[in-house]
Amino acid sequence: YSTSSRVVRFVKAKSVGLRLTGGNDVGIFVSSVQEGSLADSQGVREGDQILQVNDTSFQNLTREEAVEYLMALPPGEEVTLWIQSKQDIYRKMISSNVGDSFYIRTHFDFEKDTPSGLSFVRGDVFHVLDTMYRGRLGSWLAVRMGRDLQEQERGIIPNQSRAEQIASLESVLKATSGTNPSGARAEFWKLRGLRGAKKMLRKSREDLSALTKQGRYPPYERVVLKEASFKRPVVILGPIADIAVQKLSRELPELFEIAPSVPRDGASSKVIKLDSVRQIAEKNKHALLDITPSAVERLNYVQYYPVVVFCQPESRQGIKAMRQWLAPDSRKSSRRLYAQANKMKKNCSHLFTATISLSGGGNAWYEQIQDIIRTQQNQPVWTTADQADVAPEDSLEVLNPPSRVASGYLTCDSHANSDYDDTDGETGAFTDGEAEDAYDQPGLARSSEP
């Protein structure tokens, strides 16, 4: 607090009689004082920074949060303001047009409803620049962040409370539609945003998927850019995933290790223990995981942030030729692999951290996968903001969930990466209508099952 800081007290009338500017990045400032208001008579002036109101610090609030806080105070009650005159910073702030500044990751899909709006899909990251677009509550001014971490187009997105409404409506619609390709996702992200989710995790049972049954939908997650202090797990998706994983672990054993899958209790399906992923990371290697897309979401949730490379096939024939060349003994159906890849692309692309094309000849795909893993390992990751100030050397410990959670399981991919008994010549019933095929499909499991 500067020497000019002071405390003012007055009874809130119908309103406080102030307009605010600034935001979490620069502080909350008074931009106007209503003439004749009690705030005016108590000496609140334009350019004053509000440090605290009653018991609430204003030092890190967004402009919207500050406004909502003051609006929610009941009229007729005394308000105590800690303020300081900061004319120089106030002028500088106005001339440089800065205010709020923070990053969010979205956890619902949004179709823009105004020309200046931005559409987005879950997983998109935005830099929020103003939580009160045009001075009113309702929309945030934001810039989309590209995969290359460069800022892209600027526009408006719903504010927190509108986002909550839209997201919960979306999840209700999806839950009741019956043709929901992302029920598991929606459920998962519902849980994902819960502030208390970690507590729930601690109370957790063995199967993380049990957690996805509860919780509230989190529309926006605060994130910061942070480098991974451990070797990120790697998930390869697409029609040659099995081959890629074998080749990486065989040819580069000092860098890659396949995470072992174990039978799930009382079931023929298989799971990967989260703890074995952690153990591989502790050996300073990338764990190679054969898991479902929804298990990828769980990995993100527990902040392992896997590198997820999708191998995009050119055609069914291309897959067939490639697999005959790379794994002549495999009996996987190229028709099925091709259909699965298409569904995965349609339903899960928000989970991919990179996509490679399989149309190139030779071993280009293999080189590309290695390049991507190397590059992404060295790039920072959008990480939950809550744990941003953890010391790097502690990160693995903290990034990893507590021990009870570490015994959690990841569902093995019963669908994308496993070997099917059916062969290319077969013409079994296989429809494209089942969008959830690309996600966990307990009904369709590994080749060991009937």
Binding site: L18, T21, G23, S32, L129, M132, R134, G135
Partner: peptide, 12 residues
């Protein structure tokens, strides 16, 4: 339009 001078902002 950013927060700017806050003169377009709602009264609270």
């Amino acid at each position: 339009s950013k927060s700017g001078d806050g003169k377009n902002s709602v009264w609270i």
